[in-house]
């Protein structure tokens, strides 16, 4: 039985991962630590576990693995502390906000001989798994092009602050799809163009709309919308969509389009109730198994860094008004 802890409930995904830990029979959710004691204690109480205010005490409490779900810029320090204490780590995306931070985190985990995973639950979405299988089988032949989206509602809170988030919508909504494409096509990104800005009046100084154009090895052309463009009245939080243009056919995947339309007079807006499998459960189950088997999580820290490098190139391109090469840091 893997003993698991969560470091910080700053990111809303922590609540889903906590529920997954409680759902998985192979995991024991033993403790929560948070630099916001009130938030951590409330979450611990919600999920029937213990809040430990002191970080050293938390790391010394017999846990085997931690999920780090803090604000983006705090990932590195928390991962380094956990690695030094010999814990297996699953870190929320983006892995960090700079490639240098990613490199340091990967090195710290390698030096401590602990596993480091990046929380990319899209790899566990059944529709994406099914299409990846078809691509691997050669059913679509070579993939020539893709147009993708990771649209979302404005998350607010620390996501709106540069000093905690490290960037706006482009930072928040590029890495999932960048990782999915690397995974599905088995290619690296080579260059990026990006138009972005604060265009949608969201309550932040950061970019709330991003439109990326990317190229992968072999000349695959891709566009991606990384945006907080979904209205508050939109029926759901957002989407992950990909249209792939292949030699033998095309495929469009609307990953979360397993939904009911719900018309409820209290809400006074249409809501979509998702009924598909929970991808977070696959992500957390893999991490728990990695902890148990003392192996790397399936989606690694390097995967997290490679996706972040696309984001960094996007901001560079947007600032310079031309394409930016994707710089792949050593690892």
């Amino acid at each position: 039985m893997a003993k698991m802890g969560i470091m910080s409930f700053a990111h809303m995904h922590a609540y889903s991962y906590a529920a997954c830990l409680n759902e998985l029979p192979e995991a024991e959710f033993v403790a929560v630590w948070d630099d916001d004691a009130g938030r951590g204690a409330a979450a611990a109480s919600q999920f029937g576990t213990t809040f430990i205010a002191d970080l050293e005490e938390f790391l010394g409490s017999g846990i085997d693995g931690v999920i780090v779900t803090s604000e983006n810029v705090k990932h590195r320090a928390m991962v380094e502390r956990a690695a030094a204490a010999g814990k297996w780590i699953l870190c929320e995306k983006p892995l960090a906000t700079t490639p240098a931070d990613c490199q340091a985190m990967i090195k710290a985990c390698a030096d401590a001989k602990v596993g480091l995973g990046t929380a990319f639950p899209c790899r566990y979405i059944q529709s994406l798994l099914a299409v990846k299988q078809q691509i691997d089988n050669g059913d679509f032949g070579a993939i020539y092009a893709a147009s993708c989206t990771n649209n979302g509602q404005f998350p607010g809170g620390w996501f709106a602050q540069m000093d905690l988030a490290g960037g706006g919508a482009t930072m928040d909504h590029t890495v999932h799809v960048a990782d999915v494409l690397r995974w599905m096509l088995g290619k690296e990104f080579t260059k990026v163009y990006c138009e972005n800005g604060h265009l949608l009046g969201r309550d932040t100084d950061l970019d709330d709309a991003g439109c990326l154009q990317m190229e992968m090895e072999g000349g695959v052309i891709i566009s991606h919308i990384a945006s907080w463009n979904r209205a508050k009245s939109f029926p759901t939080w957002g989407d992950v969509t990909l249209e792939l243009i292949g030699e033998k056919g095309v495929v469009y995947i609307d990953s979360f389009n397993q939904k009911l339309n719900v018309y409820n007079d209290d809400a006074m807006k249409t809501e979509w109730a998702f009924w598909g499998d929970n991808p977070d459960l696959g992500l957390v189950a893999d991490f728990v198994a990695a902890v148990d088997e003392k192996r790397e999580p399936s989606v690694t820290g390097v995967d997290g860094m490679r996706a972040l490098e696309v984001t960094v190139a996007a901001y560079k391109a947007a600032a310079e008004g031309r394409t930016a090469a994707v710089q792949r840091a050593a690892c």
Partner: peptide, 19 residues
């Protein structure tokens, strides 16, 4: 300003991504 990537394949497959 305009940015574009396009396939323009000889086997009659074309796809254009324009910003």
């Amino acid at each position: 300003r305009v940015f574009c990537q396009a396939l323009q394949r000889d086997d009659a497959i074309d796809y254009a991504l324009v910003t």
